[in-house]
């Protein structure tokens, strides 16, 4: 759900319309991309905890 929210923000008219020398579209895009990758790392940890029984054979 959080990833869907990130995607919705990225494609919203507010965004699709400077920081560290970068224009808004680029730095915001990089920020959202990084956020999703961090969520992937957390999601992987949580998912393997939830599925630990099924992962015994993997």
């Amino acid at each position: 759900m959080v990833v869907f929210l990130c995607a919705a923000i990225q494609f919203s008219p507010l965004v699709m319309n400077y920081f560290l020398g970068m224009p808004f579209t680029l730095w915001f895009g990089i920020l959202i991309t990084l956020l999703i990758i961090i969520l992937t790392a957390i999601g992987g940890y949580v998912f393997s905890r939830l599925k630990s029984e099924e992962l015994k054979d993997d």
């Binding site: 990833v3 995607a7 990225q10 224009p23 579209t25 680029l26 895009g29 990089i30 959202i32 991309t33 990084l34 999703i36 990758i37 969520l39 992937t40 999601g43 992987g44 998912f47 599925k51």
Partner: peptide
């Protein structure tokens, strides 16, 4: 710079899907 959203953002969402689909 919108090319970033075209590829990098899409790739990030893709790696999130890998967690779930890969399992």
């Amino acid at each position: 710079v919108g090319a970033w959203i075209f590829l990098a953002f899409s790739d990030a969402v893709m790696v999130f899907l890998i967690l779930w689909f890969g399992f």
